[in-house]
Structure formats: C-alpha cells, structure tokens
C-alpha cells in the first residue's frame, strides 16, 4: 500500500471551496480562460499577503498572480495556454506569507473544480466527466488524474458517442462495469489508504468513488488492501450491485431482442 506523508507543521489555514468561484470560459480558436471571484477577507489573513491561482493537470501547472488578500485581482490574460483543453482542469488558490522570508503558505484550497465541469442534476455530483475526441480505433479511454474528476473520453468517430454512453444499453453494458472495476482497482491497489482523511480534500475523487461503492454494497466496510482476493470479491460485489440496480443485462437483452 502506498503511504504518502503530508507535512502541515506550519499551521497552514484552509480556504473553503465555498469562498472561491472559478469558471472556465471558452474562447473560439484559442484555449479557454478562467474567471474567478475570491472571498478571502474573513479568514484573518494579512491584507498584503499575495494570492495565486494555479490551474493544473497532473504535473503541469499554470500559475497566475492575483493581487493580495485585501485587493484580489485577476491578471489581464487568464488563458490556459499550457493545459490540454480536452482534459479536466483543476485549480488551487494559495495565499503566501507576505514577508517572503520563508515561502510558507498561510492558506490554500486544493482540487477546485471549475463551474460547468462537475455538479450533476439536483446537487448530485458526477463521478465521471464525459467528452469526445478522435481516438483512432480505440472506442474509449479512461483517464484517472492525480486529483479532480475521472474523465471518460468516447471516440467522436462513433456517431452520437456521448448520447450512447448515457442511453444505449449495449454501450453501457460494455463500458460501465469495466470503468467501475478499473477505477476501484486503481483506488484500492494504488491510491492512498487515507483517501478520505481530514487533511486530504474530502471531496477527492477517490473518496467519492469509495462512498459510491459502499452505498451500492449497502455496507461501509472496505476490503483488506493487502489481500487481492478480498479486493477482487469486494469489487465484484460493487459491479453486481450496480448491474442489478440499473438492470444492465436485462436492458441489453431487451435491446437485442428488439432487433435494433
């Protein structure tokens, strides 16, 4: 099991996600830019502390100086030149020590999803974002980021690929169980054991997926991560529960029996 230690000996404060609004804005013929509004005044931070917003995808970061706590302002150009606009983007907001003596962060918010990319209907959060792109002969691919949302890319050469994922039982029966297995194996075999710990972003995708899996199983327990058989069995229970809940094979049989 991978264990990652995190150091917070400096007493860095937390900026709540509710204090930050970030949205991506499409720009024809160019990468998107972002807009942001920050509410940092009630956090007890020095007014002259510099504020930075970082847009990131894995190890690629694009950083913007955004004024100070008492005078936050975005730079003139917030275009995300360096990031891949076909993949999810996440943001961090950082407030640094104004003295410059030690480079410490006074407060930060991590793994912020921009508006339009995450919340589902009626306040439910999606577990996967779906996009389309030309993938050659690969029907779909699943990207699992270090943080943020899992992205499913369907091949745009397949007519109505995105709609089929949402509606077509044939597609769903082939794709959804595989996604569930792939993601849960990744979490249980590779990701941090403390995915839902307090010092981690409690809305991390690992945490949301584990909670989703537990709800399906109707059980709060997790498998012993040192025991591959236990992991196999646990994940198959999740796939079975998902398939039962959504009648995956029943709907497939109905579709195929309909001769379409």
């Amino acid at each position: 099991m991978k264990v990652q230690r995190r150091f917070n000996y400096t007493g860095r404060g937390k900026i709540k996600k509710s204090d930050v609004d970030i949205a991506l804005v499409e720009q024809p013929g160019m990468p998107p830019k972002f807009e942001a509004s920050l509410r940092l005044s009630g956090l007890g931070l020095p007014g002259n502390a510099p504020v930075f917003i970082e847009a990131y995808q894995s190890e690629i970061i694009e950083r913007f100086e955004c004024g100070t706590v008492e005078n936050p302002r975005l730079p003139g150009d917030t275009t995300l030149w360096s990031l891949d606009d076909t993949r999810p983007v996440r943001f961090r907001v950082k407030v640094a020590d104004p003295s410059g003596d030690n480079g410490r962060l006074l407060a930060a918010a991590f793994s912020i999803t921009p508006h339009g990319d995450e919340p589902g209907e009626e306040g439910r959060e999606s577990l996967v974002t779906v996009r389309t792109a030309d993938l050659g002969n690969t029907p779909y691919k699943l990207e699992i980021p270090d943080s943020g949302m899992i992205q499913l890319t369907a091949n745009s050469r397949i007519p109505y690929a995105k709609d089929r994922l949402v509606q077509d039982p044939v597609f769903q029966s082939l794709v959804f169980p595989a996604i569930i297995r792939g993601v849960l194996y990744r979490i249980l075999l590779w990701e941090d054991g403390d995915a839902c710990d307090e010092d981690t972003d409690e809305e991390s995708w690992q945490c949301r997926w584990l909670n989703f899996a537990k709800r399906l199983r109707g059980d709060d327990s997790e498998p012993d991560r040192q025991n591959i058989d236990a992991i196999d069995s646990w994940i198959e229970d999740v796939v079975r529960a998902f398939s039962e809940t959504h009648r995956i094979t029943d709907r497939l049989v109905e579709k195929l029996g309909g001769g379409q």
Partner: peptide
C-alpha cells in the same frame, strides 16, 4: 510533500 505548506514557486 512540501507543496501543501510552502509555495515552491516563490522559494529561493
């Protein structure tokens, strides 16, 4: 590991 507590970009 220090990224959550230090601003690596501004460190000397």
């Amino acid at each position: 590991q220090f990224e959550r507590t230090y601003d690596l970009f501004s460190l000397s």
